[in-house]
């Protein structure tokens, strides 16, 4: 992996979309509408803080939880609810590695690539997953089933090599267990 690009790759995408956001008057971006549920969740989150801006990460997560990722239109809709510039929301969205500014698969596989997992067999695990799915870190399978991403130490070093699939923590995962594990996520 090129060391200059963040591993999740979302900064690469966001550079393009940021210029879209600022330069474009493309009305299609405004087609995005937050559901009532999403709006209520964001407005409720705002009450936990001293000002609406602080709810921006929560708002991005609210949208992502339901839609899998955060589109340009969602960034603008969130900025409207929070009353802050879209470029600020975009700046936040692109900073955090677990906010996805491009579509991801139905299941996100986060493989811990930190030191203790390195010592307990991360490389073999990563290769087994890549082999099984036919994709490398930062990529999504053609059938949109899995996206594979590296992640910082999952705080499960005693169970390394560890990974998460969606909200589930797994570890230690042996390379020969990978196929059966992935099978559980359709």
């Amino acid at each position: 992996m090129d060391m200059n690009t963040p591993a999740t790759g979302n900064t690469r995408v966001s550079k393009a979309s940021q210029s879209n956001l600022i330069a474009s008057s493309d009305n299609r971006m405004h087609d995005f509408v937050l559901s009532d549920e999403e709006r209520h969740e964001i407005e409720h989150e705002m009450t936990h803080y001293e000002n609406p801006r602080a709810a921006s990460i929560g708002a991005l997560k609210t949208v992502q939880r339901r839609r899998g990722w955060v589109s340009d239109g969602a960034v603008i809709a969130i900025s409207d609810v929070l009353g802050i510039p879209a470029s600020d929301v975009e700046g936040v969205a692109t900073f955090y590695s677990l906010i996805f500014r491009q579509p991801v698969g139905r299941h996100v596989v986060l493989v811990c690539d930190s030191s203790s997992c390195h010592l307990t067999g991360h490389d073999e695990l990563r290769d087994a997953i890549s082999g099984e799915l036919g994709i490398g870190p930062g990529q999504t399978t053609e059938d949109d089933r899995f996206t594979l991403l590296p992640v910082c130490c999952l705080g499960a070093c005693d169970r390394g090599p560890a990974l998460m699939i969606d909200d589930d923590l797994h570890g230690p995962v042996e390379p020969n267990e990978v196929a059966a594990l992935l099978e559980r996520y359709s």
């Binding site: 930190s114 030191s115 203790s116 910082c152 130490c153 705080g155 499960a156 070093c157 005693d158």
Partner: peptide
């Protein structure tokens, strides 16, 4: 808690 090798606060 993201320090590599740290799993106590969890």
């Amino acid at each position: 808690e993201m320090e590599p090798g740290t799993f106590k606060d969890r």
